[in-house]
């Protein structure tokens, strides 16, 4: 059986549109409140993405300004260029994906899961190339402090981005939460790269990088919890 024949078969098997009960159409039309209030459509995606990027940059810079730019000052020009170029590429991509996750019917280039994997893999590659000190002194104590600091910056960045998109509507809460979390996580990594002067490969690759999946996971869980608590819409079966 060829493809057009299969298409014919599928169309023939599908329920016919038929005529809808006019009473149903009337009920639906009546359920629309009158007068219909004019609404302001959401701003263009690029503007919302720019807002999300500014939030991330602002949180990372404010955090590093408060804690000190020790990491940035210790890096050479090549390290600075590579790390911050990678972040400058990934944050707008994550911001754009988050914006699209909050607008129904948007064109998406990456799923939130793919975004998380790609962002983590790119950052891991860049950090593995740059940091070749394989000592592991104070691995847990210094690492947990960095993880907590990075996460403490990822949370406000993710929440502020969510606040920016508060008029949006996530058709998939988990996906939107994951994207917001990944975006916040990138802000947390940015803050740590500016601040943390510990350049041991294991420290950077484990504890700095862990902020992205940790924050994305927290975002997905939070969004899922909020989604399941949302009150059910009233149904008016007539």
């Amino acid at each position: 059986m060829n493809e057009p024949e299969m298409d014919d078969l599928l169309r023939a098997s599908a329920p016919a549109p038929g005529t809808l009960d006019p009473a149903l159409l009337k009920r639906i039309a009546d359920s629309i409140e009158r007068p219909v209030r004019p609404v302001r459509p959401l701003p263009p995606s690029w503007l919302l993405t720019a807002g999300a990027v500014l939030i991330c940059a602002g949180v990372a810079l404010a955090g590093a300004a408060r804690a000190g730019f020790f990491g940035f000052l210790k890096m050479d020009v090549f390290e600075r260029a590579l790390i911050f170029s990678a972040l400058a590429l990934l944050i707008p991509v994550a911001g754009s994906e988050f914006v699209h996750a909050m607008i129904p019917g948007s064109r998406r280039r990456l799923s939130s899961g793919a975004l998380l994997i790609t962002a983590t893999a790119i950052l891991a590659g860049v950090l593995a190339i740059l940091f070749r000190d394989y000592q592991t002194s104070r691995f847990f104590s210094a690492g947990i402090a960095c993880l907590a600091t990075g996460f403490a910056h990822a949370v406000p960045a993710g929440l502020l981005a969510w606040l920016l998109l508060r008029r949006g509507f996530a058709v998939n809460y988990v996906s939107a939460g994951l994207a917001a979390g990944a975006l916040g996580g990138l802000a947390g990594v940015g803050m740590l790269e500016l601040h943390c002067p510990n350049f041991q490969a294991a420290h950077v690759l484990v504890w700095h990088l862990a902020i992205v999946p940790l924050s994305a996971g927290a975002g997905a869980l939070l969004a899922r919890a909020l989604g399941s608590r949302r009150p059910a819409s009233p149904r008016n079966r007539g």
Binding site: L24, V39, R167, R235
Partner: peptide, 14 residues
């Protein structure tokens, strides 16, 4: 019906 109620609520997202 539920879909139309939701569409009305989030019509600004188009």
């Amino acid at each position: 019906q539920e879909t139309w109620l939701r569409i009305h609520k989030v019509r600004h997202t188009h």
